[in-house]
Design a protein around this nucleic acid. Structure first.
Length: 125
DNA sequence: CGTCTGACGATAT
DNA sequence: TATATCGCCAGAC
């Protein structure tokens, strides 16, 4: 059984381009309904192969880490995938519900189990 | 080990 | 509807 972190990365790696998910949603799909904060922690330590920018909070808004730079980069990456932001709140998605990915629980387990990627930079070929 | 921290989230005010 | 609080999980010390 993969660790919670590994499962998180495996799932996030499979979020389709132009789609997003919330921290709590990811935790719930991995059978830890109250593990949203842990997901955020995992994103902070995510490697370059993890599309961390496709993960937002439950309000469909970018969560800040203190500096605004990372938030700005996250927004830029999402816009590059065709995701639009609210004109009133530049960190909030315009149509969060429409771009949110809703994989079924069994689909999630299947892709998490089949994902053999590892977090370390040196993945065995 | 116990304690504190944080890219969260639901509830109470 | 907009803050303030409190609970949770994995890690860092």
């Amino acid at each position: 059984m993969k660790s919670f972190n590994e499962q998180i990365y495996a799932l996030v790696r499979h979020i389709p381009r132009g789609k997003v998910m919330s921290y709590g949603q990811i935790a719930a799909l991995l059978e830890k309904p109250r593990g949203a904060r842990a997901v955020g922690w995992a994103m902070a330590a995510a490697g370059p192969d993890v599309p961390w920018h496709r993960v937002l909070n439950s309000a469909g808004r970018i969560s800040l880490r203190g500096d605004m730079l990372s938030a700005h980069e996250q927004r830029a990456r999402l816009e590059a995938e065709g995701v639009y932001f609210d004109a009133q709140d530049d960190l909030k998605l315009r149509d969060f519900k429409k771009v949110q990915w809703h994989p079924s629980p069994w689909e999630v387990r299947a892709l998490v189990d089949s994902d053999d990627s590892v977090d370390s930079p040196e993945s065995p070929a």
